[in-house]
Design a binder for these strands. Sequence first.
DNA 1: TCATCACATTCAACTCCTTGAATGTAATTG
DNA 2: CAATTACATTCAAGGAGTTGAATGTGATGA
Lengths: 131, 131
Amino acid sequence: MTSNPIEQFEASAQLFKALAHPARLAILDILRDGEQCVCHMEAVLGFRQAYLSQQLAVLREAGILQDRREGWNIYYRIVREDVLNILHTVHSSLPEQIPSAKAHSCDCPKCKRKDAPAAEPQTFFMANQAG
Amino acid sequence: MTSNPIEQFEASAQLFKALAHPARLAILDILRDGEQCVCHMEAVLGFRQAYLSQQLAVLREAGILQDRREGWNIYYRIVREDVLNILHTVHSSLPEQIPSAKAHSCDCPKCKRKDAPAAEPQTFFMANQAG
DNA sequence: TCATCACATTCAACTCCTTGAATGTAATTG
DNA sequence: CAATTACATTCAAGGAGTTGAATGTGATGA
């Protein structure tokens, strides 16, 4: 098993395949600061809801994201530390980085009018740490 | 320019797209130790020559590899430090790593019978450093 | 210049990814 | 339980990646 060079790198290739899309990288860029609800990403990125949900599904099925329901909203977060490191490496090599307004708690009208809980900045995921 | 979230991550997505293939990851794994001729990769990986050349072209056109001719042989090397860092990150998170025989100078029969120059272990590329 | 070696490129069939449109579902409110 | 909210899933057409087969190209040696 995993004797040939193809099988040996299949898993890594699958990971990179999930990252090989600008929309999904934009999603992960938002989630680097911590978990966010879907409506927040929808407002910040300007994607249609169904489209955003499709891209989230790809990242979820790749094991990169995990979701958590809280009433009407569903919050996504990055659950793979190596992905955070990879994103950091790539962003460091970029010519310039746009700060963007995504760092704010939650500017989207949907979240604001419902006074949703803001995302707390985290180093990595604090859940899933032996409950 | 680069105002929308799609354009902003296009370049990174292109990079990941080039990495999203097990054969190309196997190639890069060999080149992590330094430059190697095509016949070496052909022997170690067991790929057909044309197939290997196609995958090398993808990595070359993505700006990840650079080639250098030396007589009959063409030597490839990694010219992007961020890619080396990304590969290191991914390999660190893998469950187990197969040492493999790729670290040896050049075991392939073609290279051996011609007594080709062995690959010298390098930290990063030493060429392209202001000539 | 012709034959050979090492490697690159083109082509075509196939598969996988992309993405808009439509529809489905769990939680909440009344 | 019916309506609403927030999000997920399915479907299909178009586009892009994959890969075997055939062919092309530059360097070397006679």
